[in-house]
Design a protein around this nucleic acid. Structure first.
Lengths: 346, 346
DNA sequence: AATTTTTCTGAGAGCGCTCTCACGCTTTTT
DNA sequence: AAAAAGCGTGAGAGCGCTCTCAGAAAAATT
């Protein structure tokens, strides 16, 4: 079952056929259907009837080709994982702001696979979407270098462009991690387990960097022994946390570097007699309910900003230099981080 | 800031220019870049170098126009709310199955707004995607009547087509609701609060229907007094549950008709001295953790089936009649539904 | 009555690509 | 030696639409 099977295509009616049936020229039919220019009322009606009768649907591909990319109303969002509430909220903010400006959002998921990301960006760029918003999982973006000049604007979100100057909306990952670390250190924790996502991701490295700053300033050495990386899904994170808690001495606190990992940690800590303190990056769906302290931020706002930058590129001065927007994070203290450090081991 | 601002388009290089730069005809350049047909090795290289130098990117719109819709690799998914884990899991199953068949998935969200759904389907159909998967929020689908014959295949998911014969993948909503109702009734509950989504949604009506069957057979009258509808988001659901619990007599059990509503109920029940039994439709993110009984099913499987039906339409016999696939549900009993009915009132 | 202006329509070109058809060159087969 | 087959390339058409340009008919102005 491959792409060459015999598929029959009865052929859709074209504008020409609608025009023929209603006894006018193609251009007049076009005018009647698009509502542009002068068309006599009864001509318009005749054309519409013919179109309905034939089941005509305009060919947007041909229209786009003729009009050029600037006519398209589609904006693409490429993200790693749509199931992640962070991205779906970002998409939601983005979509709303685009919609009020007459643009439609379509999204595609790469599942953090650079090869698929490349294929998807290529497909969308070749299809001449109006603009592209990318949460990239790739190490470099040289292949996009020509795009900005050549017309299709794009904006990076969550993760910055590498080897390329382009608009971006980022989070203050470093600052957020510092807030979390400071909170734990000030509560007296010295052994803090850190569970991170894919180590190649920029956000991840920045968060570890912020954490490291604070703990090293506090004179804590050997913190890296309690660092586990590449826990990309909930199950892996859960296992990583169990592993950390089984050590001697065990960490008295945990810092989980994104929402999925936090979820895994919550699972691992369930029913634990003396759970370590816990603080996670990203808000959690039932975070308040579960009493989990988090470094929170506003994904919708990130989406809105991405839309704004895109709109500026579309309708503003094309010669503007690339802009970076950095959004703040906020420490939200709930129960989970208030557990004092109890020294169990050595 | 509208769509007519002065936007400068330096113009992207076309195949013609690549051909000119490398001293060959357009057709040869096309062959060299697409890797099809015979091209001398050094000609191919020359063309590729010229393309790189100019920053050439093929115009997929023109290619699609020339080749016809059958060349496209894009399949669209239109759903009500991508942030809902049900849809994102569905999208995930769909995407994977499409990908191994060389197709790419793009998704668009309607936020349950029929007008936007219409716009998005139109846009995607006009852009000649290869196929369309729709979780429709519309009351009728006459406007799609011509599509199946005219070429672009589509599959309905979660919600059936109305006024139209088309492939669909549905859930056994009625059966699932019966399971839930039976479970509660057999535990002795007589006053069961039911909180539902938008009453116009097919899934919703079917679930209420299944519930009604069971309770009426059990001789329970007046159940509709405890039915609250149109709780489309978590907050509304939470309020609805509080309202129900404040009544005299209060319901001894709750049946929440989808995951968002269940989440709202969990919130409302937090810290309640004697919470009613609870069972929800759809699995919950931390359902096992929270101990919430649910009617569960497999959204990924639904996505895979949708892909299968689409592929069959694309590569199989075009004259096949429309098919409907109904997927089973399963009762998953956890703590929340084991609370016995205690009579508080009347 | 002659003019300008407004309303309505159509012929023809062309967006950028790939397809059909054709021609020449080289290598292999009869 | 000729014919047949395999390679490598290009001219020209056309996918379905909208644009430019232009012309005719109707309405409004002098």
């Amino acid at each position: 079952m491959t792409a060459d099977a015999p598929l029959k295509q009865p052929g859709r009616p074209s504008l020409i056929q609608v025009a023929a049936l209603s006894g006018v020229s193609a251009k007049t039919a076009s005018r009647a259907l698009s509502g542009e220019g002068y068309v006599a009322a009864k001509t318009r009606q005749r054309v519409h009837e013919a179109a309905d009768q034939l089941g005509y649907r305009p060919n947007g591909v041909a229209r786009d080709l003729r009009r050029g990319a600037k006519a398209s109303t589609l904006v693409g969002l490429i993200s790693g994982d749509l199931a992640n509430p962070f991205y779906s909220r970002l998409a939601s903010g983005l979509e709303r702001k685009l919609r009020v400006n007459g643009l439609q959002l379509i999204t595609a998921s790469t599942e953090e696979n650079p090869e698929w990301e490349r294929q998807l960006t290529d497909t969308l760029l070749e299809r001449r979407v109006r603009g592209l918003v990318i949460a990239s999982t790739m190490a470099g973006h040289d292949h996009l270098a020509g795009e900005r000049i050549h017309g299709i604007p794009f904006v990076f979100v969550d993760r910055p462009p590498v080897g390329l100057s382009a608009d971006a909306v980022l989070l203050d990952n470093r600052g957020g991690a510092r807030q979390a670390a400071r909170h734990l250190v000030e509560a007296g924790h010295r052994r803090i387990g850190v569970i991170g996502d894919l180590s190649r991701l920029f956000t991840h490295r920045d968060r570890i960097g912020g954490f490291a700053e604070v703990v090293e300033t506090a004179g804590i050495t050997g913190w890296a022994d309690y660092l586990l990386e590449d826990a990309h899904d909930v199950a892996t994170a859960e296992r990583a946390v169990r592993e950390l808690l089984g050590r001697t001495p065990a960490p008295t606190a945990l810092f989980t570097l994104n929402n999925r990992i936090t979820t895994g940690a919550v699972r691992a800590l369930r029913g634990h007699p003396s759970p370590p303190a816990l603080i996670g990056f990203d808000e959690l769906d039932l975070g308040d309910f579960l009493g989990v302290s988090v470094i929170t931020h506003d994904p919708e706002e990130m989406g809105r900003w991405a839309a704004q930058l895109l709109l500026d590129q579309l309708f503003g001065d094309a010669d503007e230099p690339a802009r970076h927007v950095v959004l703040p994070t906020r420490l939200l203290v709930r129960d989970s981080s208030e557990r004092p450090p109890r020294d169990l081991g050595g």
